[in-house]
Design a binder for these strands. Structure first.
Lengths: 145, 145
DNA sequence: TGAAAACCTATTTGATTAGTAGTATAATTT
DNA sequence: AAATTATACTACTAATCAAATAGGTTTTCA
């Protein structure tokens, strides 16, 4: 498993904000309820989004969260790389100071590099807006029958 | 992390067999030594390869393993799907009887399906032979300088 | 018959995942 | 000022999984 609940929940939260923020803030309680995700757990995931300024927040009465940017300005790669520690499909690629001794003449390393590239390019090719659009299209089709 | 040591070691074992089997069998002890992988751990990984007839084996004196097919007839997808439980990048896609309640109108599911597809297509597009060729090319280049 | 190999199953260790719980802090309304 | 509503922060926990280690059994051949 490459993408855990952290990343998936973060994505769903941000889609929920996009849908419900209007020009105000969305209380986490409401997003959590709609998405059926533990609010407490979301509270833990949010700081990593906040640190990268992906969200805006206000505290207290009528407080909550909203997106810092327009939905078209977030790629899934942005969100998932932020919340998952790493999207690397194999440990070898986590360059953070555990260099594999075999790297130099490893026959398989290029394969993993290629896989990593394919994954990131796919995820960077999709924005929040793309998902909203697809969802709208699907919902629209329901009425057509 | 999507691909653990199981899959990576299996791949390296099979590349080692391809390189050293000639027309005989390769003792696991030797592959394990060359690849610097615990022989005991490899012994646990091999049964899953064997069950799918990816290897041929003989026991006893001069026994060992060899590839059942030609290197061009294995894709990395074959090997990795066999040894990893699943290559699914998210739990939602492991259809084995834990269907997510939200599946029907989940906005993100199509994204994960697409990611899964991209990953499998990439890995099914590479054979053992491809890796051997690349390795040969790299080694060749070393002499050219 | 003895050595070399594969085969099989149990156990262990540590890390990670997916939360729960409790308290502190900030903003707003009454 | 007090009560309410909300985020922010930190600690803890149960379960699962990864990555082996360990120890024995069976087969084959010289």
């Amino acid at each position: 498993m490459m993408i855990s609940t952290r990343g998936r929940y973060a994505l769903r939260l941000m889609l929920d904000l996009a849908e419900y923020q209007g020009n105000g803030y969305v209380a986490l309680k409401d997003s959590a309820q709609r998405q059926d995700i533990s609010k407490k757990y979301l509270e833990q995931i949010i700081p990593t989004l906040n640190r990268l300024d992906l969200l805006r927040t206000t505290r207290g009465y009528q407080g909550g969260y909203r997106l810092a940017l327009a939905p078209k300005d977030y790629t899934l790669g942005d969100i998932l790389r932020a919340t998952e520690g790493s999207l690397a499909p194999v440990a070898c690629l986590e360059t953070d100071d555990n260099p594999c001794a075999r790297q130099a003449d490893c026959a398989t390393l290029p394969v993993w590099r290629g896989l990593d590239k394919v994954i990131n390019e796919y995820l960077d090719g999709i924005t929040l807006q793309d998902i909203l659009d697809q969802q709208a299209a699907r919902r629209g089709n329901d009425y057509v029958i």
